[in-house]
Structures are given as C-alpha cells and as structure tokens.
Design a protein around this nucleic acid. Structure first.
Lengths: 338, 338
DNA sequence: ACATCCTGCACAGACCCTGTACAATTCCTC
DNA sequence: GAGGAATTGTACAGGGTCTGTGCAGGATGT
C-alpha cells in the first residue's frame, strides 16, 4: 500500500475511495485482509491519475481498461480524427471524450518539436526521450506522427545532409527516435486478432525510419505489424511474408534516390507473393519509379496519409470478410464522439 | 552469523524472524545446528533490506527470487532520498566464500537461451522479447550478459554467416535484441552522478552489438553511458567526448576483420582527446592490431570481463577522487523513513 | 569456560482496514 | 442565477494485522 501511494502519488484514502466507489482497481487481499496491488493495478492507477489530472472525471474513466485509457490519454490533445483502433470495448457505452480540450494541437505539437530539436542539439538522449514521451502523452497518435515525428526526422535529415549537425549528434538522436518508434509500435499494436502487415525496406536501402513510421501508422489502424528491418532482398521479404501469412507488405525507399534496381526488385517480390497480398511502397526513391512500379503491380503511396486510408480500408475489409457478413456486434468500430 | 549481521546491517533476531516467518532465506546448518549462510543468501538479504527500506513489506517480497528483487529495486528506485544513518561500517569484511551448491545458474541460463533461439527461428518477435524479459528477471545482469546475450548473438551471427538462417529472420531477431539492450541500458543506468563513458564503433564498423553490450557492462559497474552509435569517424567521437566531458571511451570493432584503417583512426582519436581520457577497444577486428593499438595508446581488451574489471576500477577511482578521501564508495542507506 | 548461537515466546508500535462524516466543487433544475 | 443534488477529495476513530525486537533457557564451539 505504501509503495503504491509512493509510486502513484495518490492519497491512500483516495485509493480506497476509488476502489470502493468506482471499482477502479480490485487488488487482491492478504490473509489478514491487506490490499495486494499488482503491477497491473499500479499502471492503471497511474493512467487514471494522469487522466483525472487532464480533466476527466473518475466516474467515467474508472471502469475502462488499460488500452482504452492509454488511447484516451493520447488523443486528449483534441484530434478526434477517427483513429480506428480496434479497442476491445465489449460494452456499448462509448467513451465520451469530453471536449475539455484546451491547448491548440499545432502549438503544442510545435512546442514538442522544438523541445525535441533542442534536446538533440544538446546531445542529451534522456531529454530527447522525455520530450518524445511528453509529446506522446499530449497528442493523438496521428498528430504525433504527422506533426512531431515526421518533421523531426525531416529536419534532422536536412541538417545532416547540409553538414549543419555533427554526425555523432545525429547518431545519438536517431538511436533515441528509433527506440521510441519501436516502443510506440509496441504499445499501439493490437492485442486482438488482426491482419498482419509486413514492413521493411528493399535491398540497398538502409534508412529504416520510413518503414518504422509506416509500421506505426498501420498499427494505429488496427493492423498487426512485423518489421523485418532494412535492406532486405525481395526473396527474403517474400519468404517472411509467406511464413507469417502476411496480408500486405509496405516498403519504404528513401536514400539512394536514384536506385535503378528498385523496379526489378519489386517485380521479383510481386512475382513471389500470392496475388491477394498487396504490396505498397513509399518514399522519395520510390517516387521516381512510380509509373514503373504501378506497371509491376506495386502501388506507390506519396504520403503517409495515403497509407493510412489504404490500410484502414484494408482492415475493414478484413474484419468484414472475417465476420462473415455485416459488421459483428462487438467489432472494431471505435465510437466517434459526436 | 555475525558476519552476516555485519554485512547486511540487520539485527540477528530479524534474520531469524525473516527466515521463520517468510522463508526469505534457508541457510544450511552445521552439524550442531548453526546457520551457514551462503553468498547467495547474503546477496538476497541485502536486496531485501533495500527493498524493505524502500517501503515494501517483507511478506510480499520475501519469496521472490533474486532477479525479481533486483528488477523491483530498480523500477521504483528513482527518488530515493534519505541517507540517514551511515550504514553499518561494512568495510574490512571478508565474507567466507562458501561455494555451496550454486543453484544451477547455467542450467537456467541455457534454458533461457534455448527459448530465445526457438523464438528467433519462429520469427516471433513478441516471443523473443518475452524470453529475454524472463531471462532478465531470473538472472543477474552479469549472468544475463555473459550467459544469454553474448551466446545468443554469437549463435545468430554464426548461423547467419553460414547461411543457415534467413536474413529476414536474423533482421527481426536483431531488432528485438537491440531494443532489449537499449532498454536494459536504460534501466541499469545510474540515477546518481556518475562518470560518463562513451561507447560506439569506429568508422567503417557497422556492427553495433559489441558496443551495446559494452554499454550494458559498464552501466552495471555504475557508469553513466552515452552510446554515440556505429560507424563514426575519430573526429566525431572526440568531439562528442569533449562536449559531454566523458571520462573514458570504449569502442567495438567486429566485422571488417582486417580493417587496415583501424590503427590510424584510433591514433587520430587518441590525439584529439585529453590524456586523462582512457580509450579502450574490443572485438575481433581490434584483436589483429592489438600491438599497434597499444603503441598508439589505446588498450585492447580481449573480453567483456576485462572491460568489466577495468571500468570497475575506473569507477572506484572516480568516487575516491570525488569524495576527497576515504568515505566508503558504496555508502548504503539503510533504515530511513519519513 | 566463555562467548556465541539456537528455539520459542511475547509484545509494542507502526501500519492498514472499515465505516462514516464532511467540505469543496460541479451539475442540474426551477 | 439561486438553491438543491451529486461528485469527489480528505479526515478520523476503533479495531485488526504486520513486523522488529527483546528475553529465558539450553546447545555449540573453540
């Protein structure tokens, strides 16, 4: 109990009140009747604390499960841009995200971005990570990607290409951002059955941030994602897709902007994959071959937004095909707050 | 018994109570019935003492194993304030090394290793991560590195070089292990002031697992670590070391085993750094140039164990120089509350 | 022999539990 | 917009539980 109080910063009386009045957590009991909080309980309490601090009332959030709490916390900045995450909300009552939103999303997004840039220049990985975490807390996943991560990576890349930032600085920042993207992917990944998307980069392309961002984007749309990493030949990607029974493959090609092997590589990939597995690709290196790629049967996506809508449709199609016909009762529709 | 009392700072009655009531430890007995504590027992008691001091109740932590205790201690270890009583002068104490049947650490380590290998072959990143987490729970950081991570990476590398595992499989596994190492580094990093060590790999060397392992090893010894990432020219490393005021630089050179530029690169690094900053390097590529490197003023370390002892000594020297004079380096803070 | 260690028992203070109450807000209705 | 109802954080008392410590009487070991 004392430990929980210290770790959550909440009053002991308050913990008991939340338990009694809202059944927010239901810790086990010792033989003598003392509460035994599990790690899960503590995590949930922390989420509740933050949510309450952000203006929600307990009575409405206390009985949500962890996934819903986390999501709520993310989209809190506003941005009710329907993120169709398949939150396993079995019950029908929707989460009324009270439009108590203050803080304009752009201004906070740009301030988060500025904080990240400052931490990068200071070569302070902890500060950078902290800034990213703050951004993740304050923004919806979509805003986080579009307004913080993409600009951040773009700017770092630009500074690097101009030689305006030390390679060591860039390395340190990249490592942190990569880890953060990994973490984001993990926490956004659905726990429920979902179609699998493979992400990676083609042979010769070692920049993996594009594919990591793609992974996050499609995870938000409900897909299960397997990142097979950068610089893989077509045969490898195809083999992995087959082994894991992927429904779709998304690639990213950034750096060797004029890679002549790209169309051939993707033709091979396309040929080795079943027809019902879609292959898409994004990134500047792919843009140059957009037409050739289309001929090969690989769709070029100019922006993450395209990937977003495409994967959303793909996900809905998957659920429909899975539920036999009309959308089942407790399926994936996240209730849009009206 | 007295020895244990001195080493742990715990009352003899308390030791007996913990044993009787919670079976916290179960020391062997002499023919006459006197308790014979093993080294393992003492370690566990120390962990329990710190944990109880941090607010946990014994009843709940007494039956956890060492790995769980350590993890618990780290997790809520931030924010420790009190120092209070200067701890039971634990100096000049020799613990009777009573070998006693070590409860098979290698067998559990090898089972963890097997689980990791199986997860890798199944191309199941979640399972791999779960196996690694389990290993982290059940083993000390040192055993974890020496008996799981190093063998795991060695085997994966071997399979890969022989073409006995698909590159895609290797990629997926590597990504998970890298993230795990990142996480491990983060959780092991000291929250208190500590000397800074830079880790990375020299220009041309893109395999970064060696440096990540090095980072973990020195973090365990108490250092603060900044990983500047792979493939960095000497000038960059030197600049980073200067900016962050590093006390030591540890590099790893693995893959291009016959890199002719290595000595030159390190000579440049050595020249750009202050004399009181040590530079060490490990890995097979460095082994070939061990003599040349020594001439340049860079120490070649054949094994992680060498790095371990060297960084330990370096850390102790740092604390001594910082505390002015004596003052036990590891001033444990025992009973403290309020 | 003498200090040390063993077992079993007892106890006091710190801690936690339940139930109830209460003040400060916020929400809603008239 | 005033007053009542609901919400929510906090406090207190009485009683049970947890846990560190001390003591008596006997055994151990050097």
């Amino acid at each position: 109990m004392r430990v929980v109080v210290r770790r959550t910063g909440l009053n002991a009386s308050l913990l008991r009140a939340w338990e009694r009045r809202y059944a927010a957590v239901e810790p086990g009991r010792s033989d003598g009747g003392q509460r035994l909080y599990s790690d899960h309980d503590v995590q949930k309490l922390v989420l509740l604390r933050d949510l309450v601090g952000a203006g929600h009332n307990i009575s409405q959030v206390a009985d949500l499960d962890m996934g819903e709490l986390r999501l709520l916390l993310r989209r809190d900045g506003r941005g009710d841009v329907g993120d169709g995450t398949p939150a396993p909300t079995a019950d029908d009552d929707f989460i009324e995200a009270r439009p108590r939103a203050r803080l304009h999303p752009e201004s906070t997004a740009s301030s988060h971005l500025a904080a990240c840039m400052a931490a990068m220049h200071a070569m302070d990985p902890r500060a950078l990570e902290a800034s990213l975490n703050r951004a993740a807390m304050g923004l919806s996943p979509v805003d986080l990607v579009d307004q913080v991560l993409v600009p951040l990576l773009t700017r770092i890349g630009l500074l690097w290409s101009r030689g305006e930032v030390r390679p060591a600085t860039e390395h340190v920042a990249s490592a942190v951002v990569r880890r953060f993207l990994d973490w984001l992917l993990e926490t956004l990944s659905p726990r429920t059955p979902a179609p699998l998307m493979l992400v990676g980069t083609p042979a010769g392309h070692r920049h993996e941030f594009g594919s990591l961002l793609a992974a996050v984007v499609v995870a938000v749309e409900g897909w299960d994602v397997l990142n097979v990493g950068p610089d893989l030949p077509a045969t490898e990607i195809a083999a992995a897709a087959e082994t894991k029974n992927a429904r779709m493959v998304a690639l990213s090609a950034i750096h060797p902007g004029d890679d002549p092997h790209l169309p051939g590589e993707l033709r091979a990939l396309r040929r080795e994959l079943p027809d019902d597995v879609d292959v898409v690709i994004g990134g500047p290196a792919a843009a140059r071959h957009a037409d050739a790629l289309r001929d090969v049967g690989v769709e070029y996506l100019p922006s993450l937004e395209d990937l977003r809508s495409l994967s959303r449709n793909g996900f809905l199609a998957w659920t429909r095909s899975r539920n036999g016909d009309g959308a089942g009762p407790d399926s994936v529709n996240w209730p849009q707050d009206t």
